[in-house]
Design a protein around this nucleic acid. Sequence first.
RNA 1: GCCCCGGUAGCUCAGUUGGAUAGAGCAACUGCCUUCUAAGCAGUAGGUCAUGGGUUCGAAUCCCGUCCGGGGUACCA
Length: 596
Amino acid sequence: MKIEILINQTIKAALIELYNFNVEEGQIQIQNTRKDQPGDFTVVVFPFLKVSKKSPEETGEEIGQFIMQKIKVVQSFNVIKGFLNLEIGIDYWIENLMQACNNQNYGIEVSDDESKTVMIEYSSPNTNKPLHLGHIRNNLLGYSISEILKANGNKVIKTNIVNDRGIHICKSMYAWQKWGNGKTPENSGMKGDHLVGEFYVEFDKQCKVEIAELLEKGFTKEQAESNAPSIQAARELLLKWEANDPETVNLWKTMNTWVYKGFDLTYKKLGVDFDKIYYESETYLIGKEEVLRGVREKIFYQNEDNSVWADLTDEGLDRKILLRSDGTSVYITQDIGTAKMRYNDFQIDKMVYVVGNEQNYHFQILAVLLDKLGYAWGKDLYHFSYGMVELPSGKMKSREGTVVDADDLIEEMIQVARDMSAELGKLESLSKEEAEDTFRMIALGALKYFILKVDPRKNMMFNPEESIDFNGNTGPFIQYTYARIKSVLRKAKESNITIDYNVRLNSLSSKEKDLLKRITLFPVAIKEAGDNYSPAVIANYCYELVKEYNQFYHDFSILSESNEDQRNFRLVLSATVAQIVKKGMNMLGIEMPERM
RNA sequence: GCCCCGGUAGCUCAGUUGGAUAGAGCAACUGCCUUCUAAGCAGUAGGUCAUGGGUUCGAAUCCCGUCCGGGGUACCA
């Protein structure tokens, strides 16, 4: 039984026996003792003063005595200012270490027949431009939260909705027709998504010129924007596409294929993947049907101009448009269609959408709409709403060229890793391929950790000049510590030191104990990360663990320790730290190099 | 206007759901490579937790007001 639960029950018994008081569940607070105080667990006695009618010190003393008598592993206790600190014997901590090191699934809940199935949508790119830093945050969070939910015993289906149709795609298509000169990824050597993105930018430039001309002729801003020739041409393309015009559909397919190839490369570099991909072009009509069904069933209503609306004022929300007056669908329409399709395809207990916080309102409405349409699960959808990535110059805007491109960023990071490694004189013994692979792991480790260590709900700042470090609280620091442990273990093997996982020991230094305590917190961290949808919890846990290990590492010798039991214990401890750190970092999608 | 989110060291971020003297990294300064990997370790300096009130044994954390920043707000996605 977990010691905290045992202490909890014992205190409950103590309060009944000592003060004839039956506490409610959750009234007893047991926390880890502060590092600067003696003891392992701390009980806050303030809440019991009312019933004990004694001073905090006396109350703590009485409860402490009681616990000492009932629980063997509690070795001693002390009371300081109303905090009852309990010291747990060495056996308990060693026992815990052995559970951790002998169990590959330590801290992880394995899914079974009773497990819930969670579908997670993330990434959701538009096919008119390449991925940027904002998408990176999305992808990393989506992938990581999938892994964390798996570790909490859920079955997870990772999914992606590709926004592959609409006016924005037609803009790139039109620009390519007009200025493309038959340029393809093959004949230009350009990555497909970048190529298409280039034409999107081209379109925007042209459009601005046209609008400026119209403004000069005395048009209003609105008129100019809708009458610009290239805008009209793009609209025409959209109509043709919806009418299934073969030439248009063909071009659309071709250009999308280029983009998908490009995205696949970026996804692969990022190490994210999907179990099932949906395309808006295949779901938007279903959404439209659902909306029309809603009109027939009087859930929604139609205006005189034919636009369809939902009245959500009863829910404290506004009215929301679902189909435009020309009958075309809006953004939320396809989300309804996609949701329906997903629930037909899979048995889903919970749907999670990883989408930026700018769409909080959108998902609030989507939940209500799905509910109104009769889908029981609609209300329970979870919008994993993450904050935006900000630059020193402000918000990223693709049209203003202030985006940080995903592929560029990854390449730059790898180059920095290379340079730094050369400067430090590392990895010289490795083959070129092995070294390159390590640089890649380090670069991505730095990037991923940098993004995932911050609370996903908050906006975060990214300074391209100086943001991503390789020292301090970073991915590479954790990877480095891991590599060093691996090195020690290799050397132990070379010297024919076998590790005995049955640890014998009768004393612990405070640093060793800190590590042992930290190890017992791994399962707690996983659970907290799952409950709060927060990879940051895992990231910060790994950092704390590794930081403590480093202190231990520098203070004690391992291989040259003469006492065999002591040496064996330190090896087991190191191996366990490595195992846990690797597992934790893998939940963040970060690979761990054996050498660096 | 209305709704949602945020404000902690010069910078980037933690803060175990209300607990003890506020925690890291970067940047600055000081030590430590003849020692299992110095992408490291030890130390110095840096704080009115935006601000005013309230709740109680106890508040960065909960409630109300104010200021500042970000996002959303009926035919963009």
